[in-house]
Amino acid sequence: MISAAGTSSSSSPLHFIGYFMDHRHEDLGWLWSHTWLSVLPVVIGLAIALPLGWLARRHRFVYPPLISITGLLYTIPSIALFVMIPPILGLSSLDPIQVPIALTVYSVALLVRVVADGLASVPEETLQAASAIGYKDLGRFFKVELPIAVPVITAGVRVALVANVSIVAVAGTIGMSNLGQLFTTGFQLSTPTPYYPPIVLGIVLCVLLALVLDGLVLLLNRILVPWRRVAR
């Protein structure tokens, strides 16, 4: 564990920059693992949500139960999910893959609805025209439906990414190495008097990470959806 000894001794919240300079090697490592823990589950979650969302769109009776079930998944507290996954999957209690698995569950929960709603945003006459000019089901999905659903899906991906950045930090409290460690450290160093720099640093890095990831998705959206930018 980190001690406050040898660091810039002020406990003012504004000294988080000094704290970062003193521990930057460790902090950057945490930032990196925090980043991939936030991103990878969304990527896998999207890959799982696409066929499920397609199913919910294709067979209307699947939509209500699927949305209810995936919605309920989101209500399981993250800490409970982290603790429950290893025994369910037969992993050791602090297996590094339990966090991405839990976050993937959350991402799927969020994205199934988004994918289904995105596909529902495709105009009926466009679907008809696509079938009528001879697209087969799979071709129609990838060449017509999915590209048109992109704006709605990326909006959901932005929410999932930012939510993940915050949930990953919770995993820090059970000992996983990510920016959440900064909060544990701050908590431990706050006896007997409050010591804020690592806590503030954790918040600042989490917010910056969320902003950067959000910006990247926005950029991706602009590249994928040139047709939404055009004005009449």
């Binding site: 466009t126 008809q128 025209a129 009528a132 000019i133 017509v144 047709w227």
Partner: peptide
Amino acid sequence: YVIQHAGLFPHR
């Protein structure tokens, strides 16, 4: 095949 409202592909 031509339909009402054309049914063009908005993304192309």
